[in-house]
Design a protein around this nucleic acid. Structure first.
Lengths: 243, 243
DNA sequence: TAAATAGTGTCTGTGAGACATTATAAG
DNA sequence: CTTATAATGTCTCACAGACACTATTTA
């Protein structure tokens, strides 16, 4: 083993290598529910099924750079909060050849989500149906706005499921909730985002108290405009709050 | 982009691919402190520095299988709790060529840790010095039993640091603490393991209460043997406890 | 002034840290 | 009976859920 690795180490062509790709889970909020942006596969294999945007990793490109490139070129999104999720290395993930894929989680504010949908990238928004509670994990399915199921390609259902699990797990002790909101937001919007990620409602006063006590939010002084009734105060994320 | 990917997808030789490896962070407890098993590099590059055991991923081998193979062949350990940690994809990680490495965390009970040290694998135990508190993350250094620093190879200090961060983060809501203990253990041993991972002492009665209330531990009826004073009750991990 | 949502106050239960106290086995 | 550790009891505080209440803006 040591010798064969020695050889492999100095002769790049000695062993056949898996292909290496990145796949992006583009998450946002649509109609108060968690949603992902998917591409419809037009070619075999898995033609007609829905897939995560992805691409191969260049030989002189870091994984993060590859993810950013896919975000830009395949989804038409300039910036988003990107975070490595997990690496999927099943042998038969793709029938064409061995592809190991590093999955990334990208969190899009509502405006960026809508913009990506309207752009030329042919992305479709899929509402995520999460039948499990808490952070235990479990399957996730994707449906259209009307509730019609969308068949997912390859192992992308597993990737989506892990993305939701990770997002739920990080909700309470990181700033992921803010990554899905515009820079200025009301506490109600923030609470709705948290409820969508958790898949369960939250207590209003307890939620507001927690956000305040942790120092995560800072008042902007401004108020919501164009509401039918009493406008809410606008806040922004206060990065100085302790984690 | 779409076209070049199409070509890459069907012609495996069309683009140069990064090499893909796994690296294992073998963690255990030594002298009440967190420790890792390392190999001394005998050849260039980075000769004399200390590295994590690792190996290349076979073309028809899953990532998990590659990690298990390295565990067996390079560390001489039959079984351990293995968990994917993170994938390191810096372009200049290794000066020989582009190598993307999937890091795995392996948790060894004290006996397996000692056995691996005594085996023929030339592994050395390095005590981990963790200068940061909580789950924030930060640098980690490795020292010998006498406190002499061990220079780590490549980006392996980053991998170790992330392993410790992950371990701390999972300590309170998963069973990682039990993975470092033999099947039967005293509550004091369990508390010592938790203290070693946290890098901070724990309150005794609160700790026992928490372990009991969560249903994580089950009494065996047996007691410690060979102690100078009152022997403690032996417990085992109760997998039915809720997480 | 009615409607509808924004925002606050207070009670209660849970869980963890601090610390004192009791229990028990070995010599 | 001494010693050292095992194991438990209790006080207090922090924090979150439940729920009722007050405040404010628009139409």
């Amino acid at each position: 083993m040591t010798e064969s690795e020695f050889l492999a180490g100095y002769d790049p062509a000695a062993y056949e290598r898996p292909a290496l790709a990145v796949d992006l889970v583009l998450l946002g909020i649509r109609a108060g529910r968690l949603a992902a942006l998917l591409l419809r596969r037009s070619q075999q294999p898995q033609a007609g099924r829905w897939a995560l945007p992805g691409g191969f990793v260049g030989i002189a490109e870091t994984l993060d750079a590859a993810a950013e490139r896919v975000l830009r070129d395949k989804a038409g999104i300039g910036r988003a909060r990107l975070e490595q999720l997990y690496t999927f290395g099943g042998v038969d993930r793709d029938p064409r050849m061995r592809i190991v894929s590093v999955a990334y989680l990208a969190l899009l504010p509502e405006a960026a989500f809508a913009e990506a949908l309207a752009g030329g990238a042919a992305l479709t928004a899929a509402t995520l149906v999460v039948p499990w509670a808490g952070e235990a994990g479990g399957p996730v399915s994707a449906v259209t706005e009307d509730g019609a199921p969308l068949a997912l390609a390859f192992d992308h259902a597993d990737i989506l499921a892990l993305a939701v699990k990770r997002l739920r797990g990080k909700l309470d002790y990181t700033d992921v909730g803010f990554a899905l909101l515009p820079e200025h937001f009301t506490l109600r919007q923030l609470q709705d985002v948290h409820a969508a990620i958790r898949g369960a409602p939250l207590n209003k006063s307890a939620f507001r108290r927690r956000m305040r006590d942790r120092g995560w939010i800072a008042p902007t002084g401004a108020r919501e405009a164009g509401t039918a009734f009493r406008p809410a105060e606008l806040f922004r994320f206060d990065r100085s709050g302790q984690f």
